[in-house]
Design a protein around this nucleic acid. Structure first.
Lengths: 339, 339
DNA sequence: CTGAAAGCGCTTACAG
DNA sequence: CTGAAAGCGCTTACAG
């Protein structure tokens, strides 16, 4: 049970001062070669590593970045974390993950917990509650304290900071356009409530694509789902009461769930109903037929967010630069659920 | 841009000592009511929160726990994190997440990075490389330094520590038994190489179930997949060259992939081929037909791991207690891919 | 070439 | 009732 060794212990061992040990280990030219050799050898043998906490206190930076996400068990967010973790680790930062579980209160608590010196900056995506409530004081407070924040995906213009998003509007637009080009006319939309920034943009993309093709928007074909992982009865109603030859779902799960409901009702995909989703995750690959979908490139979003955050943390001139909103291009991945 | 306020600044503001401020904010009986009131009011107004790093250094504990996982984008591991994060946050701990990406080297680097004082203890699951290599010195080193480790899911008996696993053997056993009871006799197994602890146990469960039912194990029906997310050609060969009336896949993805291959070859599930997977994730719900699967209760595993870790961290008598291996019961979730 | 001192932000036993 | 001092583990400007 050899505990971690400290500078103090090494200094005592050789009857020198702590400063000498510290300098010797940094190979400072101030210290004689002989002393350095002895001390370095001893440190190596005992696996000396400087204590991170002490360094953090001294340097006034933790080399930790905090990330607050609404959830994590689904492809998009976990791929974001993968990207964040990869670049952060490569740059010498640790990643502290908090999950708001779509709750405003948890989001606030998480932020305050981390803002007390545990991290150097935030990456975050708004919880559903927060978007509904439109209350962003906790984020602005943190920013006012001088801690940089990068918002991703679910963002708001009521917070002034760096942002990384995808082109939700265009992603949706081109998905719907693709359906139209393949001859579909009765295209249903399964989307989120409008207070969700991404849901709103994707809905607008859908409407614009229809309009540009001269197809009138039929509000009966638009279903807004409150609960992202259940409660799809309205989708059943949709198929029952309307003629539908295509579905665009603004999440993978919306799309596949709609497809399964259609299949249960005797419609076959893609013949009777073409289906396109959003997020190119495992669901899309595993479903039958596999799903055509808009890829969000989550890892790329995560990496870009880390890049912006670390720049603001480390680059002298960057700190005072105006905030950027980086837009990652989405892309349509064609599979079996469309013709 | 009001920076975070410190005790020093408050003390200067009222011309008292730092000690007085510190005590006043802790509502110490040593301090006069009047002083306490003034200081507390001021602190509240300025949102004073003690600096976590300073507390960590003083208390010699960080209230952070580190978790190292092979990957995160798939259901089982992300549900483990969800469970870990939930209980940890509730108990006042932050969670630092590292991803080994199935690489031994990254696992070692991650551990060393966190072991330098950033965290109080580890939760981890072995990378594929590490299991293959059977090199666990980095874990034992950390434990020898007095830092508790809880291993989950992918474990080894070459490290002595608390562990949380599921009953892989029995989970597999009952899945295969269920297939046998429904009349299947030519049951294929899609599994991992034997060096993967969980793969090995599930394979053994499969074999035992067959043996107990008096069915001879046909090695031609066993496919070992090296790459967990691709390279399923051997599965095609399996169906081509053998009569198969059921498949047990030791991951969700193995099972669904095999099912899709069977479907492509004109076999229908569950009529021609019954299919059971492992992990009750979104793939299982989204596939057509939906997948019967062995649920691993990832969140529960995560919570139990946190529970064991924090006990060892905080409970006086627990520290010296013998290590426990907690076994979480798996359960068979029946859906459409079996009759 | 080596070491004492100050400091990062906090706590707490001790003195007054 | 208040404050000075020591300490957590480290770094670094300064003195010798």
């Amino acid at each position: 049970m050899k505990q971690k060794i400290t500078l103090k212990e090494i200094s005592r061992r050789f009857n020198v001062s702590i400063s000498t040990v510290s300098k010797a280990l940094k190979d400072s030219p101030e210290i004689s070669e002989k002393t350095k050799e002895i001390i370095q050898a001893f440190a190596k043998e005992h696996h000396y590593k400087p204590n991170n906490i002490a360094l953090s206190l001294k340097n006034q930076k933790t080399k930790n970045i905090g990330i607050i996400l609404p959830e994590i068990v689904h492809y998009f967010f976990s791929s974001v974390i993968t990207g964040v973790e990869r670049l952060a680790t490569a740059k010498g930062y640790n990643v502290i993950v908090c999950i708001s579980n779509e709750s405003f209160d948890k989001e606030v608590i998480n932020m305050q917990m981390l803002a007390n010196g545990s991290i150097d900056g935030f990456i975050m995506s708004l919880s559903k509650d927060t978007e509904k409530k439109q209350d962003f004081h906790h984020i602005n407070e943190v920013i006012n304290q001088g801690m940089p924040v990068v918002m991703i995906d679910r963002i708001t213009d009521q917070v002034n900071c760096d942002k990384v998003i995808i082109d939700d509007f265009h992603g949706a637009y081109s998905a719907v356009q693709y359906l139209i080009e393949s001859g579909r006319k009765r295209i249903a939309l399964i989307t989120m409530p409008d207070y969700m920034s991404v849901g709103k943009l994707r809905t607008e993309g859908y409407k614009k694509a229809l309009a540009d093709a001269g197809i009138e928007v039929d509000e009966n074909l638009i279903v807004k789902v409150e609960d992202f992982y259940g409660g799809f009865e309205p989708v059943e109603e949709l198929f029952k009461n309307n003629e539908v030859d295509a579905v665009f779902g603004v999440t993978e799960f919306f799309a596949v769930s709609a497809m399964k409901i259609a299949q249960k009702m005797g419609k076959s995909a893609p013949k009777d109903v073409s289906v396109i989703g959003f997020t190119d995750g495992i669901i899309s690959i595993s479903s039958s037929p596999s799903l055509t979908t808009v890829s969000q490139h989550g890892e790329e979003i995560g990496e870009k967010a880390v890049d912006l955050l670390i720049k603001r943390l480390e680059e002298e001139d960057f700190e005072s630069r105006p905030y950027e909103t980086e837009i990652i291009k989405s892309s349509l991945v064609k599979r079996e659920s469309t013709l």
